[in-house]
Design a protein around this nucleic acid. Structure first.
Length: 832
RNA sequence: GCCGGAGUGGCGGAAUUUGGUAGACGCAACGGACUUAAAAUCCGUCGGUUGUUUACAACUGUGUCGGUUCGAGUCCGACCUCCGGCACCA
């Protein structure tokens, strides 16, 4: 083969290149609709083309590939696509720093990363590859935007938004992690800007309720994270009276409404300005001083629980509509403008925050829920009382338990037209405007005469101009590009200007999975026949970090796709696997720590199969994986052992006729080997199908090779058995290490075709007919004997008690009880 | 603070589904074979303690304490630690 002493060595480089070429030429992994086969859509989260594949990608894509290859062997018609999340800021930063155009930078990166993925031997249908920065793709982002605009689900509003100074753009709530930008870690500031939003809040209930559909297929923690993120809470909007006008506030505790002793406004509340105008000079100064103080304190601090609650009295009062109490109105730093109406009714006796504030400003505390155990005295309370109890000081509701009173009070409020039951969400509308160049232009035009005019569908796409100036100064490059901005109003033909904001890149990734079903469709985002056949995604695999961003947006978008009549079904991803991170020396990989693992280096040194095997073997997929440079040597050795072992026997096997062997004729070690083969097939199949525990699947294949290596093959029966074992082993290893499996499988000794079927095991031969019976004395293992399977409990007792090895433990002892567990053990309970 | 998840050899991890031989498989380490030598490869040892010339034997051991059980890494209760998410959401 390669001559000389090295003949046996596995030349992975040559072999891997050979098979990559063959797969491509034969279009082995190209998917198309087959009505006689069950479909299986296996999807991995597409990468951002940052320049190089990193080890986290490798893990994600290898896991996806194992599932795709396995399902193909199981007879499914598998769709396994890949593409590029092409828009985003690093491309633009490269343009600013190095003067490379974002389009070129992105294209070059894709070229490189594509070749890296091919080297890994991932079985993608490359004919469906897409990049979101291609105009054939982003055209449909714009199309969706117009549809959302038509439906009133896209709107523009001036509001406080999260602003990242470094990125010079706004961020969605989900992209602010602990007060910092999710990309660059800069502290996020609040700016009041006119921005585009998608009305995801209209779908809050659906997003929550449809968890039911994906309950079984998604990790519990992702569902919990989404549930918390959506943050549904049921309550009531109550109209308090302020200067003879309705002043609504939201509460989830209407049972405490008789205990309101002050009201507090968020410092950003619009009414605050009116109040200032009305105030005396002295009060005006006091309020402005307070507002300035709040403004200076950064948002991160303000949102933390340790922040001291402070406020200022406005000298004004509101009226509690239930008892007409006159209630002092404060402006307080702990009230959030983004939640409810930006104003709260404060009940110090039954809310800890209100309690702290009241103590500080000596506001009265009024108990309205009395504990049944101990009597609450407002003067002596150390903290708010949050438990259940009996209503007091609550007019006609006195004496009810507070849970009942909750409903009765709400009924009363609604009957008297003082308010309305409401559901409030923590979830905010999705801010999609970005003041950047490398994204999808938002397709609207501003005309002096006609106002806001959507671009006509037939004029799509609104193309990104190529000739644009990038600078360190920040600000939107599109806004500075007159050639792009200046346009003609589609309505009146007069002079008009284009929107210069581009879309958040999460818009791109909200529907790419559906585009894969019809990547070349030109009249609609996707072809109905294709999407109906392939969707939903049967298995989605990606990082946990997208739990509340991408995975929420994509679910939202699919509901819109459904409502537009473009697809059926409510959920895009039926099963989700969130793989753990790849870490090194207990720490997240990062350039600054210098612990980044370069996959190319390991492919060059050990080959793709060895890398694939190690990354699967080191840990189950959902757990973090601790990378060690040495670990891969183990799987590399295994591949070489497999190669050497098969090559030393292949000549002898080759001439063995393809005879079926009758397992009933096998005895002794041959029978053991045969049973081990069946056990291994069962174990590997179960591990893949039940919980994707590829690490134990691979371990059992290793064990099987170890067992095969110890056996001496002499007779023809031995060789038939060996041939059978090896053929099956090549099939079992195929999803994990496809290259060596193909290379050896195509040898005429095995003659496997391009798409061989996953092996079955013989149910009659997964167990031996005898087993090791454990003998315990008082629960401790004291002996092991071989017993036939299915031995009766009485016989087991007999056998255990007569075993010579156990006698010394039974000497001078009284046997109290003997507990036999069929086909397992006998426990003898003794007393001395 | 609230909500999740996890604690097993020097290390990654198995066994947790259904209570029944703890430590599969691999890494590292150590000993041996081959070699002039090294690498590679192959064979062997490998939780701890104690005893024995050895084969071996006993005790102990799955974060801590307690419980249930003939029997607990696995079930129950309390606690400790670590990781992740959310965090003044009215």
């Amino acid at each position: 083969m390669f001559g000389g002493q090295r003949q046996m060595e596995y030349n992975f480089d040559h072999i891997e290149k050979k098979w990559i070429k063959i797969w491509e030429e034969k279009r082995t992994f190209h998917a198309h609709i087959k009505n006689d086969k069950k479909k299986f859509y296996c999807l991995v989260m597409f990468p951002y083309p940052s320049g190089r594949i990193h080890i986290g990608h490798v893990r994600n894509y290898v896991i996806g590939d194992v599932i795709a290859r396995f399902k193909r062997m199981k007879g499914f018609n598998v769709l396994h696509p890949i593409g590029w999340d092409g828009f985003g800021m690093p491309a633009e930063n490269a343009a600013i720093d190095k003067g490379i155009h974002p389009a070129k930078w992105t294209k070059d990166n894709i070229e490189h990363m594509r070749s890296e993925l091919k080297r890994l031997g991932i079985s993608y249908d490359w004919e469906r590859e897409l990049a979101t920065c291609d105009e054939e793709y982003y055209k449909w982002n714009q199309w969706f935007f117009l549809k959302l605009l038509e439906k009133g689900l896209a709107y523009k509003k001036k509001s406080f938004v999260n602003w990242c100074q470094r990125c010079q753009t706004v961020l969605a709530n989900e992209q602010v992690i602990e007060g910092k930008c999710w990309r660059c870690d800069t502290t996020v500031e609040q700016e009041k800007l006119d921005q585009w939003f998608f009305k995801i809040t209209s779908f809050a209930d659906q997003l929550l309720d449809d968890h039911r559909i994906i309950q079984k297929g998604w990790p519990q923690r992702v569902l919990v994270m989404q549930k918390n993120w959506i943050g549904r809470s049921e309550g009531i909007m109550v109209n308090f009276k302020f200067q003879n006008k309705d002043f609504p506030i939201f509460t989830t505790r209407p049972d405490t409404i008789f205990g309101v002793t002050f009201m507090a406004l968020s410092p950003e509340h619009p009414v605050v300005e009116e109040i200032i105008e009305q105030s005396s000079k002295k009060k005006k100064e006091e309020i402005i001083k307070f507002l300035n103080k709040v403004k200076k304190e950064d948002i991160e601090k303000r949102r933390s629980g340790e922040y001291e609650k402070e406020g200022v009295f406005t000298d004004l009062y509101v009226i509690n509509p239930l008892n007409n109490d006159k209630i002092p109105l404060y402006i307080a730093n702990f009230v959030l403008m983004e939640y409810g109406t930006g104003a709260i009714m404060a009940v110090p006796a039954h809310d800890q925050r209100d309690f702290e504030f009241a103590k500080k400003y000596k506001i009265p505390i009024k108990v309205v829920i009395q504990s049944e155990g101990k009597q609450l005295n407002p003067d002596k309370m150390k903290e708010a009382y949050l438990e259940k109890g009996i209503q007091v000081n609550s007019g006609s509701f006195n004496g009810l338990d507070n849970c009942q009173a909750m409903q009765k009070i709400m009924d009363f409020i609604e009957k008297k037209d003082l308010g309305k039951r409401t559901i409030n969400y923590r979830l905010k509308d999705w801010l999609i405007s970005r003041q950047r160049y490398w994204g999808t232009p938002i397709p609207v035009i501003y005309c002096k005469k006609c106002g806001l005019v959507p671009v006509r569908e037939k004029d799509l796409p609104v193309r990104l101009p190529e000739d644009v100036k990038f600078s360190h100064k920040g600000g939107s490059p599109l806004a500075r590009t007159e050639l792009f901005i200046k346009t003609i109003c589609p309505k009146c033909g007069g002079e008009a200007r284009r929107e210069s904001d581009t879309m958040d890149t999460f818009v791109d990734s909200s529907w790419y999975y559906a585009r894969y079903t019809s990547p070349n469709e030109t009249t609609l985002p996707f072809n109905k026949k294709n999407i109906t056949y392939w969707m939903p995604v049967d298995q989605y695999i990606g990082g946990i970090e997208h739990a509340t961003m991408h995975l929420l947006y994509a679910r939202f978008f699919y509901k819109i796709i459904r409502d537009l009549g473009l697809a059926e079904g409510d959920e895009p991803f039926i099963n989700l696997l969130t793989q753990g991170m790849v870490i090194k020396e207990g720490a997240k990989m990062s350039k600054s720590k210098g612990n980044v693992v370069d996959p190319d280096k390991f492919i060059n040194k050990y080959g793709a199969d060895a890398l694939r095997l190690f990354i699967l073997f080191a840990s189950p997929p959902e757990k973090d994986l601790d990378w060690t440079d040495k670990g891969i040597e183990g799987t590399s050795r295994f591949i070489n052992r497999l190669w050497t072992f098969i090559n030393t026997h292949i000549k002898r096997i080759e001439s063995i006729p393809n005879k079926n062997l009758n397992p009933d004729d096998l005895i002794d070690t041959r029978k053991e080997l045969f049973i081990l083969l069946n056990q291994t097939i069962k174990k590997v199949t179960d591990d893949i199908e039940n919980d994707f525990h590829f690490n134990t699947a691979i371990a059992s294949i290793m064990e099987f090779l170890n067992a095969l290596s110890k056996f001496v093959y002499k007779s023809e029966t031995d060789l038939i058995l060996l041939k059978l074992a090896l053929k099956n082993m090549l099939l079992l290893i195929r999803p994990f290490a496809p290259f060596i499996s193909e290379e050896l499988g195509h040898h005429k000794a095995f003659d496997l075709n391009d798409q061989p079927a996953w092996p079955d095991y013989d149910k009659n031969f997964v167990r031996f007919d005898s087993y090791t019976m454990i003998i315990q004395i008082n629960g401790k293992v004291r002996g092991k004997i071989t017993a036939p399977l299915g031995l009766s409990e009485d016989k087991m007792k007999e056998l255990a008690l007569s075993d010579p090895g156990t006698q010394k433990w039974l000497k001078d002892k009284d046997i109290e009880k003997v507990i036999p567990i069929k086909n397992k053990l006998v426990n003898i309970v003794v007393k001395s």
